[in-house]
């Protein structure tokens, strides 16, 4: 495994975080994904949840079970030792290399902040759309809402910060920008991202065995569809 500097600290009495610095970098996140897949694959005892993020990975564990079988050591220290052991294995894991294309309708009625982004960037709306769909994004993490992908990196010209006053309701499927990140709201929710379009595709579907369309590590590209296609696909999805 690629060597990165890290620190390990508790986030409660039954969880810890391994942090590889406080930056959004492809190389750092690659290290996070390596460790994520390794911990999943090797099924370290007593771990009940593993949460990869931009530059950290957190592990939730069963403190009582660890203490019962290892009475002379802190459960935190025991778990830390297991994780350090895993990190020292120089094994390179087969990482998720999925690439997924998602249709987006960049119509002003579905992307109410298109004008604001265009003004910010001193570009036309068409240029903003072209910049957004030109990039191949990486899903760095999933969080906030079930299935909400945090993707990067947005073209510098259109890196508009979050709205100062979040909307009380953002429709499901909305595609937004927040600084260097782009994301999609899987369900209707309050939210502060700058909305530039909407996808008719369901990102989270409770009726599916794997309810999440995207997973951490996926690569995502967007293609533009017309408003007619959008509503057509939307109806198709719901029937």
């Amino acid at each position: 495994m690629q060597k990165l500097n890290y620190s390990i600290y508790p986030i409660g009495d039954s969880a810890l975080t391994i942090e590889f610095g406080n930056t959004i970098r492809e190389q750092t996140n690659e290290g996070v994904m390596q460790l994520f897949h390794q911990l999943k694959k090797n099924q370290v005892a007593y771990i009940i949840d593993i949460i990869p993020a931009y530059s950290s990975i957190s592990v939730i564990y069963n403190t009582v079970a660890i203490k019962k079988s290892n009475p002379n050591i802190l459960a935190f220290d025991w778990m830390k030792q297991q994780i350090v052991k895993e990190m020292e294995l120089s094994h390179v894991n087969e990482l998720n290399r999925r690439q997924i294309t998602i249709p987006v309708c960049y119509d002003i009625t579905l992307g109410p902040d298109l004008n604001e982004v265009a003004d910010y960037a001193s570009l036309s709306i068409e240029e903003v759309i072209a910049l957004h769909k030109a990039k191949l994004y990486k899903v760095y993490m999933i969080g906030f809402l079930p299935g909400f992908p945090y993707m990067a990196t947005v073209d510098e010209k259109i890196q508009l910060p979050r709205k100062s006053q979040p909307r009380t309701k953002v429709p499901a499927g909305s595609v937004g920008i927040a600084g260097a990140q782009t994301g999609i709201y899987p369900s209707a929710s309050p939210g502060g991202w700058q909305l530039i379009g909407q996808t008719p595709v369901k990102l989270f579907d409770v009726t599916q065995e794997n309810p999440c369309l995207l997973q951490p590590g996926d690569k995502v590209s967007f293609y533009a569809i017309s408003i007619d296609e959008f509503y057509h696909l939307k109806i198709e999805q719901s029937s």
């Binding site: 986030i11 942090e19 406080n22 949460i51 957190s58």
Partner: peptide, 8 residues
């Protein structure tokens, strides 16, 4: 800060 996991 950059987002990371939180717990109950």
């Amino acid at each position: 800060m950059i987002s990371s996991a939180v717990t109950r």
